[in-house]
């Protein structure tokens, strides 16, 4: 079912549309999808894709193509915090494997999975352009660099729901 765009979403999309020629509304599709993804807890429903298509006067398939092409869009429900871990060369050369093992063990999930409490999703990503801080990962908008297992524990502790923290 088509999502009804919130006023806030419409305002954000309308402001961004000003960057493009008036007959090129499709240019705004990436931004519009980001807005709807953020409003929906980090993932896009088919209804959201339909809503963007209607709002930007695009064929639904063209929006769907964009939503499936770019790696930052999620088409399945996702945890509250998406942990995007780089495993590319510089991270690999700097013991990135150990970071990945630690994350998987600590969260008890594999790539692409979400913790049972819905708090974390673990995602393998390509080079984040933070190779001087390898190994590196991104959670939400924030980069975390020079990772060690201890540092990961500290970072996760600040993001975990309180009751879990107390249970540790």
């Amino acid at each position: 079912m088509t999502v009804i765009l919130s006023l806030k979403a419409k305002q954000s999309i309308d402001a961004w549309l000003l960057k493009y020629p008036i007959d090129q509304k499709q240019s705004c599709v990436i931004h519009a999808l980001k807005v709807l993804q953020d409003e929906n807890g980090g993932w896009l429903t088919e209804g959201a894709i339909e809503a963007v298509a209607a709002y930007l006067a695009m064929p639904k398939i063209a929006v769907y193509e964009v939503a499936t092409f770019y790696s930052m869009f999620e088409l399945q429900p996702i945890g509250k915090h998406k942990i995007s871990v780089c495993t590319n060369i510089a991270c690999l050369l700097n013991n990135g494997d150990k970071i990945v093992q630690h994350l998987k063990k600590r969260l008890n999930i594999e790539w692409g999975e979400t913790t049972q409490d819905g708090c974390f999703t673990l995602k393998e990503v390509e080079c984040l352009a933070a190779c001087d801080g390898a190994p590196a990962m991104q959670i939400g908008q924030i980069y975390y660099e020079n990772l060690t297992p201890e540092r990961i524990d500290d970072i996760l502790a600040t993001l975990e729901p309180k009751e879990i923290k107390d249970g540790k």
């Binding site: 493009y20 990436i30 980001k34 964009v66 092409f69 770019y70 790696s71 930052m72 869009f73 990503v125």
Partner: peptide, 8 residues
């Protein structure tokens, strides 16, 4: 205009 990609 600054515009932004989405991972590609």
């Amino acid at each position: 205009h600054n515009v932004s990609g989405a991972g590609a």
